[in-house]
Amino acid sequence: MLTRIDCSTHEEVYRVTDRESGLEGLIAIHSTQAGPAAGGLRMRVYRGFDEALADVLALSRGMTYKNAAAGLPLGGGKAVILGDPRTDKTEAKLRAMGRAVAELEGRYWTAEDMGMSPEDMKVLAGEAEFVAGLADGRFASGDPSPITAQGVFNALKIGAARHFGSADLKGRRVAVQGLGHVGWYLCDYLAGEGAQLIVADTVAARVEEAQAKFGAELAAPDEIHRVVADVFAPCAIGGILNGQTVPELRASMICGAANNQLADDAAADALHARGILYLPDYVANGGGIINAATEILRIENRPRFVAERLAQLEQTMRGILAAAARQDTSPAHVADATVEQGMALRRAG
């Protein structure tokens, strides 16, 4: 059942419940100005409903900016299911969420995010047609994680060239927080370039596997931001860059796959004041939605579309970093201003 929640910052926000399956979730549509709202479905443990609501609101707004930065004719939306995907995920809950997506009649398209897989999307697709990230089908885009990681890796090299004077990552110490699908692929790319990895994850077996495969050093999840490194790559949940963590950082550049890494604008300013280069997350991690967009938009030549849009994102990142350096301000502010200007031009046109 969808229960609408009043929210002045978003077009539509719904609480999603299903008594039979025990589903409790949320769907937030931030904007459909550029096209249908698109953004993944994540499942994770929250401290309560209010935390989940804050997360889905921030994530859906971020998707509007991410899709705009990637030049996609899509708005921003997001969905969450409250619960541990390892123990609480059931087919009944996924089907119930699929029915909720169907009820929105295409105003919101979903895909996999944290705690979800292409197999889960197939279950949702049995109830709704507005599902991307499927493993099979003419326009199936599959797991977006490798493309997301590729975009983050490309951005990291762009940042390294500007910040360190060379895009060569050999010997660079990169601290990766979160070894989910995207974080793992990013480690693979970085190890292939000869980077020295320090990794952290809440799943002990995952870090042990990374140690064996990549020769990575290990750190505790709540300590990884403090390790001595050239680059800190947040690839877990958002808000990691905040008033407490920014003063503790011992890396001079930040580039990762996590959404909403900055807790607030003050964190962006604090990073800039410390001389830490922050690469705006929704520009760096836009590869996943580009990949999913090929399914939503029914793109015939997916590899070409993805390659062209990733190249466009690289140019956007270069422009943002150059402008931020000229203006002596955080790239986060330049990114927001750049995207908002583009959205204003589309509205005027």
Rank of each mutant, 00 (worst) to 15 (best):
C187D: 11
D188G: 15
D188A: 14
Y189T: 11
Y189Q: 12
L190R: 02
L190V: 10
E193L: 09
E193H: 10
G194P: 04
A195P: 05
A195G: 06
A195V: 08
A195W: 03
L197S: 03
L197W: 03
L197G: 04
I198R: 07
V199C: 09
V199Q: 06
A200L: 06
A200C: 07
D201S: 14
D201W: 02
T202P: 03
T202R: 15
V203W: 00
V203M: 09
V203K: 07
A204N: 13
A204T: 14
V207T: 15
V207Y: 01
V207A: 13
E208Q: 15
Q211H: 14
Q211V: 05
A212Y: 05
K213A: 14
K213G: 01
K213Q: 14
K213D: 07
F214M: 08
G215T: 11
A216F: 04
A216R: 06
A216P: 04
A216S: 12
A219P: 08
A220G: 10
A220R: 15
A220N: 11
P221W: 11
P221S: 12
E223V: 13
I224A: 04
I224P: 02
I224M: 06
H225S: 10
H225N: 07
H225Y: 14
R226Q: 14
V227D: 12
V227L: 12
V228C: 12
A229H: 01
D230L: 04
D230V: 01
F232R: 00
A233N: 04
A233R: 02
P234V: 02
C235S: 11
C235Y: 02
C235K: 01
A236G: 10
A236H: 02
G239L: 11
I240R: 01
I240C: 13
N242I: 06
G243N: 09
G243R: 11
G243P: 11
Q244Y: 08
T245K: 03
T245D: 03
T245Q: 03
T245I: 08
E248W: 02
E248I: 02
L249Y: 00
A251R: 01
A251H: 02
S252R: 15
S252E: 15
S252Y: 05
M253S: 10
I254F: 01
I254E: 00
I254Q: 01
C255A: 13
A257E: 02
A257I: 10
A258E: 02
A258N: 05
N259A: 09
N259Q: 09
N259C: 10
A263T: 06
A263R: 14
A263H: 11
A263Q: 14
A263M: 11
D264H: 12
D264R: 13
D265T: 12
D265N: 15
A267F: 01
A267L: 10
A268T: 07
D269V: 12
A270C: 10
L271I: 07
L271K: 04
H272S: 12
A273V: 10
A273M: 08
R274A: 07
R274Q: 13
G275A: 06
G275M: 08
G275C: 09
I276L: 05
I276T: 05
L277C: 05
L277V: 08
L277F: 03
Y278Q: 04
L279S: 05
L279C: 14
P280A: 03
P280R: 00
D281F: 02
Y282L: 08
V283S: 01
V283P: 00
